[in-house]
Design a binder for these strands. Structure first.
Lengths: 327, 327
DNA sequence: ATGAAAGCGCTAACAC
DNA sequence: GTGTTAGCGCTTTCAT
């Protein structure tokens, strides 16, 4: 609602002086920025894909992403949250760590969506993969092939993804009437070396208790496990079947191509952003209408099983692995 | 310089009110934030590693990184630069695109370090890999094995890394007195599909001109090329030697393990950050001393050749590949 | 050693 | 329609 002439005069001045609006001053005045905070635990291919999902979605809402990495460290997470707060973001997307609950105060009043994992703060909104269900379907795939001694390699049980995947493993065993055997379960730190070590241990058990199949619940541990299998001269899937976690070019190219649980990583990031935005919006409305805060919304994305050639019937039940499903 | 009593009184108040300094207001007042802008062209494992290097270094200087992705798009790059400017960063680390030169005005007066590539703005500071030298050593490795028909798969020559690597390829040929043959050179977009296609083309040439070795100048194109080789039923290194680009778990695990040029990706990111900070500091001093602006500083990091098992003597020269170097 | 005031660049509210 | 003003939270300067 400005006269054409004034409009042109202003636009001219803008061009001549090279005027650029200052986002900081704007945010300060409005008490709210066009930023959104994203705190991830590391910057590896998985997290990069998550971040890309978040960024691409954020762009649609004209939001900038301020990225921090906590490296699972309490100090770094605290610093990240403090810094973020002081930048007045609209909200926060956070991969929680073991320390997040101590930092709850830093999140007070800020819309937060927990991504990939869950901190245990019950009101928190979250977007994650169906860890229980996906692990269950992985292990069920193995029981259906006839495996009864199935080794499981999981993350430390301080992280919700790790407890969920262990739960799914147990569920599947129960479903197949196979007793849970703690000797077949190993815990690592989601990194390659620990998967390597765990697989080495499991495959070195005496022949009568040695697992005929392995479910490895993280991408990097899967790589480690496959390398361990190779070192031992054991053949996949003839001597041992392996279901890995997280799909990638590497999993597809391995010899043999791996059967995996494929996380919808990019979608996870996008969903987190969409969830956050709708949360922010509902909040804005609620503050007008004066509605009470609703409980945390939990989004669960399925992670399908992709059957390739690293799984087959156990070799003591014989039937050579001739009729496998192809990709 | 405050009385102890006042100090305590203030600190108490801080605790009770839950006071948090506002970075925005501070930046506005000081006309400078503790932020640094990082604009990358994509968010894949390579760029994630770059970003991690930048972040880790930035942390030492107590700087936050604001990350943007340009996706090589002129619109997105412009938006990223505009947004960044309005956040008053101390400086900018930028992977330039074909459009960066058009956006030079947006960079006016801001310390900028170009990362990985170079835009051609001569005064710009830059941190990159020694593309010419590394490609030269890759191809020289092949000529020394006895190859004379060496296929080259490069990126489009609009990007400095691509021109540099082609240059190195030519240099190495000249050094071995092998004439440059345009028919042996293919150009892709650094992505897997284009590497696949290029390799398919080169390996389908008539036997008398078909290359006995391939130098593939990007990581993803290398994957594509290896897949193409497999599809054709050609054996590496017996029928064709391949030197790939960028090391990774995938390159190490491929059958056979790949000979590659290993970019010091993380270091590249770190170096960019260090360069930027020293640039900012020298600038601050110069503004006091009134010194003239110095020319752009170019940092060149070496990318060593790692010889594994994907390269050997050409098979028409015979001598079976028995005496290879191991990792 | 402490308090007071001005102003960074912006927007919301109000008067003209 | 257009011009003016106050104030977001901080730092710097100046006065006490």
């Amino acid at each position: 609602m400005v006269a054409q002439e004034t409009r042109d005069r202003v636009l001219d001045a803008v061009r001549q002086t090279g005027y650029r609006p200052n986002a900081l001053a704007r945010s300060l005045r409005q008490q709210e920025s066009r930023n959104l905070g994203l705190v991830i635990t590391d910057l590896n291919p998985f997290h990069a894909t998550l971040a890309k999902g978040v960024q691409d979605a954020a762009e649609q809402y004209d939001l900038n992403v301020i990225l921090f990495t906590s490296d699972e460290s309490e100090r770094k997470e605290r610093r990240a949250l403090e810094t973020l707060r002081s930048h007045m973001p609209q909200g926060l997307i956070l991969i929680p760590t073991a320390h997040t609950r101590e930092h709850q105060a830093l999140l007070q009043g800020l819309p937060v969506v927990e991504l990939d994992r869950v901190s245990g703060i019950s009101e928190a909104h979250s977007v994650q993969v169906d860890n229980v269900g996906s692990a269950r379907s992985a292990v069920q795939h193995l029981t259906e092939l006839g495996h009864r001694r199935i080794g499981g390699i999981f993350g430390h049980q301080t992280v919700s993804t790790a407890t969920g995947r262990l739960q799914g493993y147990k569920d599947a065993l129960r479903g197949a009437a196979i007793p849970f055997d703690p000797a077949l379960v190993q815990f690592g730190d989601y990194r390659e070396a620990s998967g390597h070590e765990a697989a080495l241990h499991l495959l070195s058990l005496p022949a009568n208790v040695r697992p005929t199949a392995l479910f490895v619940s993280s991408h990097e541990m899967t790589v480690g496990a496959v390398l361990a299998v190779r070192e031992l001269g054991v053949r996949i899937p003839h001597d041992v079947s392996v279901v890995g976690f997280d799909d990638s070019r590497l999993m597809q190219i391995l010899e043999p191509p791996m059967t995996v649980i494929a996380q919808p990583t990019y979608d996870l990031g996008q969903a987190a952003c969409h969830t956050l935005v709708s949360l922010v919006r509902r909040r804005a409305e609620a503050s007008v209408a004066g509605t009470a805060t609703e409980p945390g919304k939990k989004v669960l994305l399925p992670a399908p099983l992709i059957v390739r050639h690293s799984t087959g019937p156990p070799c003591d039940v014989t039937t050579p692995p001739s009729l496998e499903l192809s990709t």
